[in-house]
Design a binder for these strands. Structure first.
Length: 664
DNA sequence: GAGCACTGC
């Protein structure tokens, strides 16, 4: 979503009966005054002419809201809907709300949206805003995307895994439909200059440039390299504060929660010692794990006579737009995920941003008026940064992506038409993982097994899908649905740092000797049984919101199971059945106790420890399953479950024979 | 004896 489109309206659907497309209408006037409006005719002509078009639209051009309407008005939806994909749910919902307003129709009629858990479309729908992940799901059922005449891939420059896979999917669908009477048009929309690769990939598609409404921004570089970017950031904050008008708010890009809270403390401390004649300031943190109520603080104006300083992660680069920012301080650092197929471990590391990311941050200062961006690095350092951020698909675990691609009917993932192919080792590692789960087979040729096909219907990581479809063999689908749902949302255990001991004491009554999975099940069961759920959550340090979310996920998974004719059996208190079932998907995530009290993983022989948040932290069972490994100060197993060596061996004899040869 | 960039189905 562009800045223009994000700002200035609330997210609640407005139901409007009068038509807004009459010339005397305000919204109509607004539409005509957008920078994109003069290009309307040319856009329609070009998109009509070419099979694929790339649109480069600066922020504020209005491309996301207007282009779909232009195509509709030009009669280009006769043979099917227009799909407009977005990387984020809130964007799909709020933009479609805006467009419905502009068109003077009710949301869900001609204009609608479709995101997980929420489908606001109908038979009348002509323009459908949706998340990229949603279109990908649809593609598994219908690889030709036959309901659509045009697919608009918005925010393509963000290069999410879903968008990257969609590139290949829509391109293949277009080829399939090229000779029929209903060709598929593709519009790729990007906000960065790097559009050549998009054009090349989509058969040299023409590139259309749109003017934006960005104001001039002054760039300030450090004169010398800064060894301590936090210190130079603090100095710069107070330099700006003392020299610039107090009405000009500041946005500082930092790497994470801890850093933000510590800088916030420093800012407040230094502010106490400012001379009398210097105005006051308020430091406001902004990061994703902040409770929603506190996130809203960034939108409130500063108390009069004070300056607002927002300390944010890269959430403020794309997901949240804060109005009124005049100064941006860019530390040039970001915390990002890196994955090496070799270690099989996801890592979060602080690293340099790319040039494109730096420009994105810079742009946050010139929204309503001219602005300034203060870079905490030299111009020379800037030129040495990567031009573009490495696409996510090249730095993540690919098991679920590979499963999805194969479910789309693509024969060989290794030759799938990626715009930027991921490393071969990552694809091979994913295939090996799926083979262990019985989802793919290499007999004669590489193919998806019936189990793999079934697994691909669940919105889960492959191990968890495997656990679900295995539950029928253990008569515990009800329990497994609960456990899988709770594991797939953010933690339901709420542990405020100040009340850690109290929280721990409250959880003790749910603890089960079998491990965290069964413990989470007992929390969920207790929650279902009580009347006053909110109060119960507060008393027991349980996160009510995340638990509600888990219930929503559970309902979706349950529906999918019913559709697959899986019987919803309960095993009551037979936790052995549950643990044996978990092994079916997680056996490669197992560890063995060593004589010295440490643990070694069974597949790569890595030294690991039980995470201190686990209910088994002080226990030493001989064999464990874990849901994930996290590398922090040590390599920790998070969410562990006690198992028998025999069960592991019975589940995957050849896997364990290779790895524990001497034992058997 | 700890620690969480950001999304999404």
């Amino acid at each position: 979503m562009t800045d223009e489109e994000r700002a200035g309206w609330d997210h609640t659907p407005k139901k409007q009966k009068t038509s807004n497309s009459s010339p005397e209408n305000d919204l109509y006037q607004q539409r005509c005054s957008l920078p994109i409006y003069p290009a309307r005719g040319k856009l329609i002509t070009e998109i009509r002419k070419a099979a694929s078009v790339v649109v480069l639209g600066e922020t504020g051009s209005g491309k996301t809201t207007q282009i779909p309407q232009y195509l509709l008005e030009a009669g280009m939806t006769k043979a099917g809907m227009i799909a407009v994909t977005q990387p984020r749910r809130v964007a799909a919902i709020s933009i479609s709300t805006r467009v419905a307003d502009e068109m003077g129709c009710e949301l869900g009629t001609q204009v609608g949206y479709c995101v997980r858990f929420d489908d606001a479309t109908s038979e009348q729908t002509k323009i459908k805003y949706m998340t990229d992940g949603m279109l990908l799901r649809e593609a598994i059922l219908d690889p030709k995307l036959s309901r659509y005449s045009i697919v608009v891939l918005d925010e393509a420059h963000e290069r999410t895994v879903h968008t990257d896979v969609l590139f290949g999917v829509v391109k293949a669908a277009q080829q399939h439909r090229a000779n029929g009477n209903r060709p598929l048009k593709i519009v790729v929309m990007s906000a960065t200059m790097d559009v050549d690769s998009f054009s090349q990939y989509f058969n040299k598609a023409p590139v259309l440039y749109l003017q934006g409404r960005q104001h001039p921004i002054e760039l300030m570089y450090s004169s010398s390299s800064q060894p301590d970017y936090l210190f130079s950031t603090l100095v710069t904050i107070f330099q700006i504060h003392q020299e610039q008008p107090v009405s000009e708010d500041m946005l500082v890009f930092l790497t994470g929660q801890e850093e933000i809270e510590s800088v916030a403390r420093s800012v407040r401390e230094v502010a106490l010692d400012l001379p009398q004649n210097v105005p006051g300031l308020v430091a406001i943190p902004m990061y994703a794990s902040l409770p929603p109520g506190q996130q809203l603080r960034v939108f409130q104006p500063a108390p009069s006579g004070k300056r607002k300083i927002i300390l944010a992660t890269n959430i403020a680069e794309t997901s949240v737009t804060i109005p009124g920012i005049k100064h941006v301080i860019d530390t040039g650092k970001v915390k990002a995920k890196s994955y090496q197929a070799g270690s099989g471990l996801d890592l979060l590391r602080v690293q340099w941003v790319s040039q494109a990311q730096a420009w994105q941050r810079t742009g946050r200062s010139g929204r309503e008026d001219s602005g300034t961006c203060w870079r905490m690095y030299t111009e020379d350092e800037f030129t040495k940064l990567l031009a573009n951020t490495i696409p996510e698909i090249q730095r993540c675990n690919l098991s679920s992506v590979v499963l999805q691609i194969m479910a789309l009917g693509i024969k060989n993932v290794l030759t799938f038409d990626f715009m930027d192919p991921p490393p071969r080792e990552s694809l091979e590692a994913a295939l090996k993982h799926l083979e262990l789960l019985g989802a793919v087979s290499r007999e004669r040729h590489l193919h998806l097994t019936p189990i793999g096909k079934e697994m691909s219907t669940y919105p889960l990581d492959p191990p968890m899908s495997k656990v679900i479809i295995s539950a029928k063999d253990y008569g515990c689908l009800e329990e497994i649905l609960t456990i899988v749902s709770v594991l797939s949302v953010e933690s339901i255990l709420h542990s405020p740092m100040s009340k850690r001991d109290k929280a721990l004491a409250a959880w003790k009554k749910f603890y089960c000797s079998e491990g965290d999975h069964v413990t989470l099940l007992s929390v969920y069961r207790a929650f279902k049984a009580v009347k006053n759920k909110k109060e119960w959550c507060r008393e027991n340090y349980i996160n009510h919101r995340n638990l509600k979310h888990a219930m929503e996920v559970r309902k979706q998974l349950r529906d999918l199971c019913v559709r697959a004719n899986l019987t919803l059996q309960s095993c009551g208190h037979d936790f052995t059945a549950i643990r044996k079932c978990l092994i079916q998907g997680l056996f490669m995530y197992s560890a063995e106790l060593q004589c010295d009290g440490s643990y070694l993983t069974l597949d790569r022989k890595q030294t690991v420890s039980i995470h201190p948040s686990s209910c088994l932290f002080q226990c030493k069972p001989s064999y464990l399953l874990y849901s994930e490994l996290v590398q922090t100060s040590k390599c920790y197993m998070r969410n562990v479950c006690v198992v028998d060596a025999e069960w592991l061996y019975e589940t995957a004899p050849s896997f364990f024979r290779q790895r524990c040869g001497k034992k058997r």
